[in-house]
């Protein structure tokens, strides 16, 4: 009886040991598997992480470039606009001063020649000297004396507001030509602006 119990205990122990060994092996194998899986996952994630990192850096760089362009572009434009306004202001002041000087200039001497040239140009453009001439009150005398050279022309009793020069009109009123100094300045202004701006150091 006692011997039988001992034998049974021994075989039970063997079985338990066997199961324990088997379980240990399974656990160790599974641990090994898990370890290699985790190594693999880690290796994979390193590549993914590096890719992701590169993407984040590239996106960041793009965004920074975009912001740089926005900021630099915006401030460049703002500075340029301020310069434009400053130059325009200076050009306007030059014009005002020049116009003031022309309107106060002496009407004697070469001025009569200028009026004759203006009348010549005007009658040529209209193709007739049968015209009515308009001028300002200051220039009336000079114009009146010059008109003797233009047969058929007459000086209007009306005066016009201008710095100087003449405005002519065909006698039927169908054609007009403005050859006042104001009109000349208007026509030349875009060219003169460039000259004045270059004096202020504005390059083309």
């Amino acid at each position: 009886m006692g011997r039988r119990v001992i034998l049974a205990n021994s075989s039970l122990e063997k079985t338990i040991d066997k199961i324990l060994d088997q379980t240990e092996q399974d656990v160790l194998a599974s641990l090994d598997g898990a370890l290699s899986d985790s190594h693999q996952a880690l290796d994979d994630s390193v590549t993914k992480l590096e890719d992701e990192y590169d993407k984040i850096v590239a996106d960041g760089r793009k965004e920074a470039d975009k912001l740089e362009k926005q900021i630099v572009g915006g401030s460049d434009i703002e500075a340029r606009n301020k310069q434009l306004l400053a130059v325009e202001d200076a050009v306007s002041r030059v014009f005002t001063k020049a116009v003031e000087e022309i309107s106060n200039s002496d009407r004697s001497g070469d001025y009569a020649n200028l009026i004759k040239t203006l009348l010549d140009e005007s009658t040529q453009v209209l193709g007739t000297s049968e015209v009515i001439v308009f001028t300002n009150s200051k220039d009336r005398d000079v114009v009146q004396s010059t008109l003797a050279n233009f047969a058929g022309s007459e000086l209007s009793s009306e005066t016009i507001e201008c710095i100087g020069g003449v405005k002519i009109q065909s006698k039927d009123g169908a054609m007009k030509f403005d050859n006042t100094i104001d009109a000349k300045i208007d026509r030349l202004k875009p060219l003169i602006r460039k000259e004045i701006a270059s004096k202020f150091g504005v390059k083309e």
């Binding site: 453009v125 209209l126 009123g173 169908a174 054609m175 007009k176 030509f177 403005d178 050859n179 009109a183 000349k184 026509r187 030349l188 875009p190 060219l191």
Partner: peptide
Amino acid sequence: MTTEGGVQYSKI
């Protein structure tokens, strides 16, 4: 750019 003026016509 021309700096000459132009003739103004009033018969429309």
